[in-house]
């Protein structure tokens, strides 16, 4: 079991470290557009859409990495006061009643959301046609990655319970 949790950690670590530099690329695209408009009076016809798309992809695809590194907002006022065993119980309940339904919805609805766009070859409607479906597919991918990380946390909570028992 522990090997699965470790493999998930590694997967999300590697993935997150690949995605993170997108934030620099977003900056460069915006700067390029400002520069082009200011110096040549000819703004680019793709920067607006690409910036928006990269932004949406970046923070979503970083979410699982964030969960792996505990950056997501949580209020642990009560939780900290409890024993490790009780903390594990809270984790298990929380991941079952809040996390699991949400991820299930994101995965199933996210997939059909992507397919509706992909099957029609949806694009942006500017001077340049940029495919939209890769970004719509990001919700599905994000949910799968977060779900995996959630499974890793779940496995560890179960192990915590077992250790306490023995």
């Amino acid at each position: 079991m522990n090997a699965i949790a470790k493999a998930i950690d590694t997967l999300n670590d590697v993935f997150g470290r690949i995605i993170a530099p997108l934030i620099a690329i977003i900056t460069l695209v915006v700067l390029y557009d400002i520069g082009l408009r200011f110096f040549t009076d000819r703004p680019s016809d793709w920067a607006f859409d690409i910036t928006k798309m990269l932004f949406g992809a970046h923070f979503m695809l970083m979410a699982a990495y964030g969960l792996r590194h505990h950056v997501h907002v949580e209020v642990d006022v009560i939780k900290r006061l409890l024993s490790r065993r009780k903390q594990a119980v809270l984790d298990i309940i929380g991941y079952l009643i809040f996390f699991a339904p949400f991820m299930w919805m994101l995965i199933s609805l996210g997939w059909s959301f992507f397919m509706r766009s992909f099957s029609r070859g949806e694009t942006t409607y500017g001077m340049v046609s940029i495919p939209v479906y890769p970004i719509k597919g990001v919700i599905f991918v994000t949910a799968v990655l977060i779900l995996l990380q959630g499974i890793a946390i779940f496995i560890r909570a179960i192990q915590q319970l077992r250790e306490e028992r023995t």
């Binding site: 009076d41 000819r42 703004p43 409607y125 500017g126 001077m127």
Partner: peptide, 25 residues
């Protein structure tokens, strides 16, 4: 050489032929 906020693809193409630039905001 003017920067015009304008939506639509045909609209942008006509504006470009006329020498202006379509800005998306």
């Amino acid at each position: 050489g003017k920067r015009i906020r304008l939506s639509g693809r045909d609209q942008g193409r006509v504006l470009e032929e006329l020498g202006g630039s379509q800005v998306t905001l």
